[in-house]
Simulated assay, not measured.
Amino acid sequence: MSTQYTYTAFLYWLLLAGLIVFFLFLSWDLQLFQTIFVQDITRISSLIFILFIAVSVHCGYRSWFVASQSLMLLKIKKLSLDDLKLLSDDAFESRSVIKDFLSKVLNSHSEPDKTLATEVLAESLRGAHQVGWFMAGVVIKLGLLGTVVGFVLMLSSISAFEQLDISDIKELMQQMTLGMGVAMNTTMVGLIASMTLGIQLLLVDRCADRLLLETIDFSLSTVDLVVDNRGEGGAPLSAQK
């Protein structure tokens, strides 16, 4: 695992974030943003946009977290068997879920404890992503809510007129257009935001899964080396595998 590889998750998220910012700027320049937010009198589109930005920042933080844990795994792989005792020492680097997991696995002789440590590691690497997936679902549901509200506004504009004549048709069409605009705009914003968040969350999930598998594989091979006492003079673990 090279140093460049460890930052793959964050670099991919930066690429996605750059594309998102570009399309947002393009939409602003083409007056699409202004049109959508002005026509949406319910402000549901604004709420969706705020949630989208918040969850995107959350994805960025999680991608950086996964990248930092990958870097920690790379540093640990360069240690010798004699230096593995430093994993339980707080003086060794900063606190890390990868370091804590490997320390528990190497110092524990109980299989249930190792299984529990693996579950804790998986929760630490992926558990926070569930909030993002939940918010992605909330975003699309807000879009559907805007659709319903838009149709309600459109139908209520018809029921407001007991009798229609030529002079009322223009006002009726304006009110119906307003309701239809709310329905279409909120649906479009909700769908686009949900799909974009799904791509970001899927990327972070895949990178976290890959890191989890590599950490478990490294811990299994390291435990075998410790048990079989194949230290080979304290050579780095990466050279012994």
Rank of each mutant, 00 (worst) to 15 (best):
L211H: 09
R210F: 08
V204E: 01
M188E: 00
R210M: 15
L203I: 14
E214Q: 15
I216N: 09
D205K: 09
L197F: 07
C207F: 12
D209M: 05
L197A: 08
Q200C: 07
D217P: 02
E214G: 11
S194C: 15
D217I: 05
L203D: 14
L202C: 08
A193T: 10
F218H: 09
D209E: 12
G190E: 06
R206T: 05
G198D: 11
I199L: 10
A193W: 05
I192W: 00
A208C: 03
L197N: 09
L197R: 09
D217T: 13
I216V: 13
V204N: 01
L202W: 08
I199F: 08
L191C: 03
F218V: 10
A193P: 02
L191I: 13
I216P: 00
S194M: 14
L201V: 02
L191A: 08
I199K: 01
Q200Y: 10
A193I: 13
L197G: 08
L191D: 02
D205V: 03
L213C: 05
L191G: 01
F218Y: 13
R206I: 04
I192P: 03
C207D: 07
L197K: 13
I192R: 01
D205C: 07
I192V: 14
L201G: 04
V189M: 12
I216K: 14
T187R: 08
Q200E: 05
V204G: 00
D209P: 02
L197H: 08
R210W: 06
L191K: 01
L197M: 14
L212I: 12
T215P: 00
E214W: 03
T196V: 07
T187G: 03
L197S: 08
T215E: 03
T196P: 00
T196N: 07
C207H: 12
L212E: 13
I216G: 03
L203H: 15
L191V: 14
G198T: 07
I192H: 00
L212S: 13
G198R: 04
T196L: 11
R206Y: 06
D217N: 11
A193F: 05
I199G: 00
V189C: 04
R206E: 04
L202F: 14
V189N: 05
L213T: 13
